[in-house]
């Protein structure tokens, strides 16, 4: 089972990555986005944000009940947010497509480990990584079925 299957899954994953690479060709000027995010027990609000690829993103962060942290996957951003203080402002450029979680990095109560938000960086075709993944899943489904079908024929 292993070898052919592995090659197949690999091929479909590569196809998905190729889709990702289309990004730079299609993106144009650099938009600017400012989003206010509020941290409270146990969510970020908004919990899901979407920005276009290449955008200059400014996040205005504040905590409203207890101290929280804001950690953004992949960008090396990790700040502490204390309630009652001035909002913390962080800026970055959304260079890569995909989904990046933002997580609370300061113990803020028992359910702290599950406090999470999601940043989606989209290309002109939307969430390209998701589409690539779905395409890969479709190819794997059909491919696996075909493989078994052919094996049966050669019995």
């Amino acid at each position: 089972m292993a070898r052919g299957l592995r090659a197949f899954v690999l091929a479909t994953l590569l196809a998905g990555t190729a889709l990702l690479a289309l990004g730079p060709v299609l993106s144009a000027a650099r938009p600017s986005v400012t989003i206010e995010i509020t941290a409270s027990q146990y969510e970020f609000s908004p919990g899901r944000i979407s920005v276009p690829r290449g955008a200059e993103v400014t996040l205005v962060l504040r905590a409203v009940d207890v101290s929280h942290g804001f950690y953004l996957d992949g960008y090396g951003i990790d700040v502490q947010l204390n309630p009652g203080e001035e909002p913390t402002v962080v800026t970055f450029t959304a260079t890569t497509l995909g989904k990046f979680a933002y997580r609370c990095s300061v113990t803020c109560g028992p359910y702290h480990p599950y406090m999470k938000g999601e940043l989606i960086v989209e290309g002109p075709l939307g969430n390209t990584v998701l589409w690539g993944g779905l395409l890969a899943a479709g190819l794997v489904t059909v491919g696996a079925a075909l493989r078994v079908h052919r094996q049966e024929a050669s019995r």
Partner: peptide, 27 residues
């Protein structure tokens, strides 16, 4: 966290492996 931005890709790859085995078994 260790390279958390890679997590979605790792997860996708894992679930595609599971999908391949399941469809194979189903057929």
């Amino acid at each position: 966290p260790i390279l958390p931005q890679t997590l979605p890709y790792i997860q996708i790859a894992l679930v595609l492996i599971g999908l391949a085995y399941t469809v194979t078994a189903l057929h």
